[in-house]
Write a protein that binds this DNA or RNA. Structure first.
Lengths: 224, 224
DNA sequence: CGGTATCCCCCGCGATACTG
DNA sequence: CAGTATCGCGGGGGATACCG
């Protein structure tokens, strides 16, 4: 990116982090995705070569270090971008895109987020497999399994022969609405937008396992 | 800008404000520059057509309204970007570009900032003209006059025949260092990096007239 | 002053293939 | 798995001229 030609620190910051994708890569690192392909998972529309270029730029600018193990990590400087990323998330939650675009409902992203944000301490002690069926997604990418072996939670894209303890039938849209805090889970369950089937005890407890997205509690603007 | 294809609010925010220049335009509006050419002044490397396009985009996205008077203004949504812009400024102050680039020292930008940030209540009651000579700037753009007629302060790029009360000889670099809080004004005066000439009373008071940049007080990272 | 309209160039980026 | 190398295109944006 060519310079903004300004001594203003806002401009100088944007020269480093203002390029397309860059702050989303930082977001991934802030969320704890340290490996190249993990990061790529979080920005599925980004090309491999571009991600490599961005990581290199961030490294050169001193926001990221690349460990010999292959892991990337934020430096103190990089970590201090958290307020900026958070600020953007809060603003986005309040003001961005009122219209849901189905093409933004990437189910892999959703399930990946979800499986990394469970209340581990509330999970059942016995091995449990939760099967998800997202009806509004093309068949190939519509089925997911959470394999809970406390404290591990594994996300599977195929059933590798295990028995399904809980079955959840819903849509990516409904799940995202809950995950993003747009709609309460209770309501989605009541309206059958999210339907759970299985042993009554587990069905009752399931809602307590879920954490919501970091931005779910952000107050929406008053529609005055 | 083509979509990021994500339901993450950070990504959705960046779809709106992540394009090159956009947040700098918002910064100008946050600073109180409401007219097209004023904004352009704050982003001198931006082309007129591009600024027009960006303002249009911001208007369409509901962050900006364009009044019949010709003035642009932020909506509540636009104003809520202040934490993001401020966050970038803080980060930039702490971590961006340790090397000063002379080409970033736009003297017009500097003088414009300066003249809009004086402690009006501390200014002399009598009409006063402060002449600036920036020795490190090409002759054509090296001279400026602040015409103080309380509570008005006017920035002039030519001497329209008025008498100079105070004469300040310095460099854009030195003045920026003070303005940005990199160096204390006292020190710059002592070392003659900034030299003031005129009636002793006014020379003594001048330092009290200046406000520093909003980011000047930001603590710099410890160099451990 | 406050923009639009048009043309055209460059480079950011995607696609694809290859490597250790 | 974690990238690099190369090629080719599309469109973002600069330059310039024009307008109300």
């Amino acid at each position: 990116m060519t310079s903004y030609g300004q001594f203003c620190p806002v401009a100088q910051a944007l020269e480093i982090v203002g390029e397309r994708w860059t702050l989303l890569v930082v977001r991934e690192l802030l969320c704890g995705n340290y490996r190249f392909n993990q990061i790529l998972n979080g920005v599925p529309l980004m090309s491999r070569s571009l991600l490599a270029a961005r990581l290199r730029t961030l490294e050169d600018a001193g926001l990221v270090v690349h460990h010999p193990t292959g892991e990337y990590a934020l430096t103190p400087s990089g970590r201090e971008l958290e307020p900026v990323v958070k600020g953007l998330g809060i603003w986005g939650t309040r003001w961005a895109r009122k219209d849901n675009r189905p093409e933004d409902n990437d189910p892999v992203l959703l399930m990946w987020d979800l499986h990394r944000n469970l209340h581990v301490d509330r999970l059942p002690a016995k091995e449990t497999v939760v099967a998800f069926w997202l009806r509004d997604v093309e068949a190939k990418r519509s089925r997911y399994w959470l394999r809970i072996q406390k404290p591990e939670v594994e996300l599977c894209l195929t059933n590798q022969g295990f028995e399904e303890t809980l079955k959840i039938e819903t849509t990516a849209q409904a799940l995202i609405d809950v995950w993003m805090g747009h709609k309460p889970l209770n309501q989605a369950l009541k309206s059958k937008a999210i339907a759970i089937e299985g042993p009554p005890g587990l069905v009752r407890d399931f809602p307590k396992w879920l954490k919501l997205n970091v931005f779910a509690p952000v107050p929406r603007p008053d529609v005055a």
